[in-house]
Write a protein that binds this DNA or RNA. Structure first.
Lengths: 127, 127
DNA sequence: ATCAGTGTGCTAGGATTCTGGTACACGGAG
DNA sequence: CTCCGTGTACCAGAATCCTAGCACACTGAT
């Protein structure tokens, strides 16, 4: 799973970074007690200003997902896996809700929406 | 079909207005040759600054959906219905693609995604 | 003690979006 | 012609996001 930044996306970069770690921790890769890359390290990896990383990490810390250890790094908390799995569900559910809302405003019936979903799925390949 | 503005949404207000008319024209309500509300009238209706309406209408005009008639108003072009139906499909298809992309990044299998879609659908009621 | 690496705090500027206000040009009704 | 409603053009400010740079405080290894 790689972080693929979209600078032109409407979701801010700091939030793309935030989601990236939420999804990774939810998947169990950086487990509780382990650390995620330092602010400067992460900034250099993805070619983003350190302040943007600080912003993203600040959100994760406020959510209780990581804890800052001065001189050490950012450590994944014990509750992080549970929190991240919850947030993952919430994020995707919101996406689905947005899709339904858009379809409703567009006057598209659910049948046509299902057909559209199938078309897109086929178009993306059976991956 | 009512314009329900979301000022806190990530999609700019001018683009919400633009989509609103695309969906309405695609549905055939303001037919070709008819007019949509003037800049000032629309601004007063939805309590938004006229400049924001100008921005939205400018996008519609550049897409060939409306044509500005000075002293008269904004008139729906003959090609507008076709253009708007195409754009409607494109907008929704993009939403679906975004959902799949997000699910993939989150490490969610398609089976679980389908289950999530059903849950949200049931939660929204059988409307 | 010294040093490198870490998180933290601050100020500043550019880009985009929206709001606010003003002025000008065009067309139809009186 | 005069007036009103129309689209158009400009300038300015607030808010958010990102970039940029700098200084400071803390931790561990040397």
């Amino acid at each position: 799973m790689t972080l693929n930044l979209s600078p032109d996306s409407r979701v801010p970069i700091f939030e793309q970074i935030e989601r990236y770690w939420i999804y990774r921790i939810a998947a169990g890769d950086p487990a509780a007690g382990e650390r995620i890359p330092s602010v400067r390290d992460m900034a250099q990896r993805i070619l983003v200003h350190p302040n943007t990383i600080v912003h993203a990490y600040g959100e994760l810390e406020q959510a209780g997902i990581i804890v800052a250890r001065r001189g050490i790094g950012m450590e994944v908390t014990a509750e992080a896996p549970r929190i991240c799995r919850e947030k993952r569900e919430e994020l995707l559910a919101n996406r689905v809700r947005e899709l339904f809302a858009e379809a409703e405003q567009a006057g598209i019936t659910r049948v046509d929406l299902v057909r559209l979903v199938r078309d897109v799925m086929n178009q993306m390949g059976a991956e």
